[in-house]
């Protein structure tokens, strides 16, 4: 019994970490291009509500996935336009996007005839395999016990890591985040690279949000994602802007969240609020690092992160 409780904890940790994996990989792409997007929380929320709306009204999970990608990218487009074309302060624009996304998702959740709030989803993503491989002790549930979006996230992490470090467009991406004037003079369109990666990053954040409403907690409440968006931003720093590290950091965060329940079942007497706080302490520490330019630099932050690029100001 005891062993299965621990495995159950790990399986839940992976599930709880998956939305953060998607959002963090998306943020890594944007930040590698030199654009800090603090709108992750907002983009995840609009993705979550779009996904839930699709499954609630037309009962299609995959339409929900598609819609969350589109809506996430659309939300990111606001930030991209602000920070790349208008060159406004990226922190301000990102925070505004989060406030906007939070309000919009709550509004849609409660508005008019749809009335999503409080409703359970008619369908959700279920574990892909049951029985057979999934029944192997220990590794069965850990490796084979997940739904398809978890496997897609593993694929995404592997592909993104290869893309960033081993391909020519990945090289261009890193150059744009490190040194836009040099990239420009090497014939790279800095604005285009930034737009593409901010939009793709937004789409992934949207999908991360939808994972919550389509698989993790298949129902609608106001702000269903907790503070997953902020956690994702913190994990990007913790992971030194590397996808694989972000994956494991996200699972660690998932585990920290689940530890709360686990310890209660084990009869350990620690105030649950204290444990629930743990991930956010982590997030605040990560933000402190981000605020100190020099320390962030040492951890591998892109040198041009959050600095608008203007061709005329060479």
């Amino acid at each position: 019994m005891n062993e299965s409780a621990e495995i159950g904890l790990l399986v839940l940790a992976i599930a709880a970490g998956t939305p953060v994996v998607y959002a963090a990989v998306g943020e890594i792409l944007a930040e590698r291009a030199g654009v800090l997007n603090l709108g992750v929380q907002g983009m995840m929320l609009v993705g979550a509500v779009a996904g839930f709306w699709a499954v609630f009204t037309v009962e299609s999970l995959w339409l929900g996935v598609l819609l969350s990608l589109i809506v996430g990218a659309a939300a990111a487009a606001i930030h991209a336009f602000n920070s790349i074309t208008l060159r406004v302060n990226q922190i301000v624009s990102g925070l505004a996007l989060t406030i906007f996304g939070t309000g919009l998702s709550t509004f849609i959740g409660r508005a008019g005839e749809t009335q999503l709030a409080g409703e359970p989803a008619p369908k959700s993503f279920e574990p892909l395999l049951t029985g057979g491989l999934a029944d192997i002790p220990l590794i069965g549930p850990l490796v084979f016990g997940h739904d398809i979006l978890v496997y897609l996230s593993w694929l995404l992490v592997a592909a993104t890591s290869y893309y960033i470090f081993r391909t020519k467009p990945g090289l261009a991406l890193r150059a744009v985040g490190e040194d836009p004037p040099s990239a420009e003079s090497a014939g790279i369109d800095v604005a285009k690279v930034r737009y593409i990666h901010v939009l793709v990053g937004g789409a992934l954040a949207g999908l991360g949000g939808a994972y919550i409403s389509l698989a993790l907690v298949p129902s609608w409440t106001d702000e269903p994602i907790g503070q997953a968006g902020w956690i994702a931003i913190a994990l990007v720093i913790l992971a030194s802007w590397r996808p694989w590290r972000a994956l494991f950091a996200a699972y660690l965060f998932g585990a920290a969240g689940q530890l709360n329940f686990y310890l209660q079942t084990q009869g350990v007497d620690i105030p649950s609020n204290l444990l629930a706080m743990l991930p956010f302490v982590l997030a605040i520490l990560a933000m402190l690092v981000l605020a100190s330019g020099e320390r962030a630099r040492k951890l591998g932050a892109p040198a041009a992160l959050a600095i608008p690029y203007s061709r005329e100001q060479r």
């Binding site: 467009p169 090289l171 150059a175 040194d179 040099s182 990239a183 090497a186």
Partner: peptide, 28 residues
Amino acid sequence: VYQHFRLVMNFTVAENLALGHPDVPTRL
């Protein structure tokens, strides 16, 4: 060659040579 070099400091020499080069294959 400009007076202010157009090199990415955090890249290796080889990466700087490859950056934006039309004949470099997609897989580095």
